[in-house]
Design a protein around this nucleic acid. Structure first.
Lengths: 347, 347
DNA sequence: CTGAAAGCGCTTACAG
DNA sequence: CTGAAAGCGCTTACAG
């Protein structure tokens, strides 16, 4: 039965508290806001009234008055992608520390929903938005009026004028592939490649892959490059299945994210390959699931916590109107290669 | 440079729009709310003004007036746990469909933060809360005044009077273990066991485990029961390491969630066991990562989408004051055994 | 140290 | 079909 917990007919206001305590409502407000200069006797009376009525501030009213809400939006593709789930957790934590609460908006790769987040933002109760687009371009962004401070995440939009926290995509990818090459691998398949011109992480990571090959004097073999679909595990499995079927020789796989790499790992093991014996595998993102696969997955740690903290801090400064003069608006987090079993020299 | 995107000094209000259009602000409000009975000529003028000023409704003001915000809280342990990340995604999606936006509050197993979610809820801008406690008990819940509709998730608190969506923990666990027994396994280790008296999923799943053994006439061997820490993958690895070291014979492992089971899988493979050849492994939750492990993980699908949808719908009904008469307040989602390679008869 | 007044931007009866 | 008024619950100068 729900009846035991009916919502009370009416919540007490500061006027109710004031009446109960025999003071004016401003006095109640001042006490609530922690102003000092309230006579002890008055304070006691008000506090008793607060207690008696079980008063809670109506934050909507406070927000209307203050013109701020203490809420921000985090707009990401989906919490079903481990990287974004972990990123969201980091953002929520960082936001907490500066007194902000986080709406999670999942746009699921839908163009209209990405646009909606931005265009609704002004009225939509939030003081700011952290936005990780997957389909919108710099041009799209220039079209809409964003009604509040915005911080961009990810690798689709650079130099938009908005603060932007990016990963070291290209360098990270290069280091990942150089690591494979240092192991003696020269036939490195790559999964997650997208059509050129489709800007974003795919392009940058591919550039890093190419750079590593070039430096080692290894020619690029397009038969080793695969589409990754939506960069989910299923895409990794699919790519590796194709690769195996093609009979093109290969001795390593670089997945553009951990999901692709773990999918690839899955496909390879199922097909009877040994990893890293026959094929070494590297991912990108350093999500938790790569730690516990067998073999565990070598990956590029893109500095997720750093990214979250930086994004929140940039947004917070923009919201509070702190001088953003000294802030660079294009920031790149530090990355690290995490060596694990999938590229171990001996199994 | 951020300067290109300064926040405009002042947002236009309906008064500004009204002045621009030469009507009263109520007319603007009515048009915005889609009321009909506005003369076409007037409508045109107002719409032009709306456009010209790039007006967006101030939702804080609307909410103050309406006494509702269209926002709910989803209070869960952490998005770093795949089960909760996927659940959050499902809740966000279900909420979207009924026009609600979701705050994700992560309590990270902290008692004070669990309490805070409830006690702040009244003032805290949300119309309702979906709450998945990990430490609060029914007694704690009875202590606090929850200021808004509440729906409980999970398996710590039953019969509190609040609507509650639970899993078929005990039955699901029983079916999982019966599945192992049907494979001929009789030495089923179990990971995630907690002290008796600590109510919740652990207790219920353990009961299911015991029931399966009992029905098969297999005596319970306490040397096969392991603590699971926080039910993360690391806990599964740790438990299996202990198990192996103990030299107690076993031929199957039941992890109380997929993270534990995947950790166990990892530990077993690393130690040279074959799965399912030497040891069959079953989990609970059916998260995405179990689909792509090698071997893929047999698990209990607890009906996550169902749970999310039901919880949102119960909350929405409570918020809108729809008759909750016919609603049962204790609901149990349907589960399904998902058979995969980790319990396949032949590898 | 405390009270009277105004206003944040909206919506909703109430007139006309 | 449209306008004048009141009020949602706060906070902040301004008096006293």
């Amino acid at each position: 039965m729900v009846s035991a917990h009916e919502t009370p007919a009416k919540r007490p206001t500061i006027y109710d508290v004031a009446r109960e305590a025999g003071v004016s409502h401003q006095t109640v407000s001042r006490l609530l806001l922690g102003y000092d200069g309230i006579r002890p006797a008055t304070r006691t009376r008000v506090e008793a009234a607060l207690q008696a009525l079980d008063y809670r501030t109506n934050l909507t009213a406070r927000n209307l008055r203050n013109g701020r809400t203490g809420m921000i939006s985090l707009a990401i593709p989906s919490l079903n992608q481990p990287y974004f789930a972990e990123l969201a957790q980091s953002v929520i934590r960082a936001a907490r520390e500066v007194g902000l609460r986080v709406f999670v908006e999942t746009m699921e790769g839908d163009r209209d929903r990405e646009l909606a987040v931005l265009s609704r933002s002004r009225g939509n109760l939030v003081d700011g938005v952290i936005f990780a687009p997957t389909v919108l371009s710099a041009g799209d962004l220039a079209q809409v009026t964003v009604g509040c401070p915005l911080v961009l995440l990810g690798d689709r939009i650079f130099d938009s004028g908005y603060p932007h926290v990016a990963m070291a995509n290209s360098e990270g990818a290069r280091v990942a592939v150089e690591h494979l090459i240092a192991l003696g691998r020269r036939r490195v398949a790559v999964i997650g490649v997208e059509e050129p011109g489709n800007h974003g992480a795919a392009e940058l990571r591919f550039a890093g892959y190419r750079a590593a090959l070039d430096r080692a004097g290894i020619p690029f073999d397009p038969r080793l490059a695969f589409d990754g679909g939506e960069w989910l595990k299923a895409g990794g499995v699919h790519a590796v299945d194709q690769l195996i079927e093609s009979r093109v020789p290969f001795d390593a796989v670089f997945g553009f994210n951990d999901a692709l790499a773990l999918g690839a790992l899955r496909g390879l093991l199922r097909a009877g390959f040994s990893v890293p014996g026959d094929v070494a595998v590297v991912g990108f993102d350093d999500t938790e699931d790569g730690l516990y696969s067998t073999p565990s997955l070598t990956s590029i740690n893109p500095g997720r916590d750093d990214i979250a903290r930086t994004a929140v801090s940039l947004l917070d400064r923009a919201i509070t109107g702190a001088s953003t003069e000294g802030d660079r608006s294009e920031i790149q987090a530090n990355f690290r290669l995490m060596e694990r079993e999938s590229t171990a020299t001996r199994t």
